[in-house]
Design a protein around this nucleic acid. Structure first.
Lengths: 145, 145
DNA sequence: GTCGTTGTTGCCAATCTTCGCAACAACCGG
DNA sequence: CCGGTTGTTGCGAAGATTGGCAACAACGAC
């Protein structure tokens, strides 16, 4: 269990949503994916626990959780989007175009960029879960040889 | 016309793809969207010029152009993805969560972040067309009052 | 605990996107 | 210019996602 039950219940009910059995199942299914999951995996896990839950409900619950910030969504662009439980400290992803390797970077790593954007454009960046594409260390040395 | 015909023909044929009438139509349709377009708009423009072009072809052409780097795709996450002709100098987007305002930043603005990531993680960032969410200057002053 | 209000769910239909396949056309070599 | 090879297209089907609606359930008030 990577999420605190009290927390998300309060979070969505403050936003005017109700706490339902189906939504709990969906959130559990997101947690069950170590780190990140795809929609397909979530739907599968929910169905295994309760096959009366409709597919639409999974879609709707996931969207609602993303809208309320309980779950965070990362669009990798070339694959299915990832879902994961939002953590206290936001983080971002690295993804190698060659081998598919994935890494994480902290929000601190973005602070310089955020300052630049604020100074030059007056815009306050507030993004969670960016995905940066590029080439990992291993693939760099491999492609040099 | 925002794209050079010679350029893209060479670019895709070097990648092993063929230059076809349908693909030219799709690319023209992307150009026709000042700056950026959605898939729906592209399909509409293509159909207006030649209603025998199938919907699947538009999907496939767009994917192929993105894969070869002729067209660039920006996933805003909460809306339809944008497509636009790739420029010589890559750029990125800002998007205000409150009013939907959109701005552009240059690739230079990311250089500090790229250095940080390379130093700390040995990862070379190579991302085009990032979308940074946040709050624009106007909405900041409005929400302060 | 019971009731009433109102958001939610499941089902089914509509829509969007992808896939498989046979006919077609781009491109190469002669 | 012509024929052969092979990627591409259009079509119809399959699969994925969204939307409408009536029955249902959460939750606040009593």
């Amino acid at each position: 269990m990577t999420h605190d039950t009290r927390r998300w219940e309060q979070q969505i009910s403050q936003a005017g949503y109700r706490v339902t059995r189906q939504r709990a199942l969906v959130l559990d299914a997101v947690c069950a994916g170590r780190g990140h999951t795809t929609l397909t995996e979530v739907a599968g896990r929910v169905r295994r626990r309760d096959r009366t839950v409709s597919r639409s409900t999974v879609y709707r619950a996931l969207h609602m959780f993303v809208a309320t910030g309980v779950v965070v969504q990362a669009d990798t662009g070339d694959a299915e989007p990832y879902y994961e439980i939002a953590r206290e400290t936001p983080h971002h992803h690295l993804r190698c175009r060659d081998c598919g390797w994935e890494g994480e970077i902290t929000a601190d790593d973005l602070s310089a960029l955020e300052e630049t954007v604020r100074d030059r454009y007056g815009f306050v960046v507030n993004t969670d879960h960016l995905v940066l594409f590029g080439q990992c260390a291993a693939c760099q040395s491999r492609s040099q040889s």
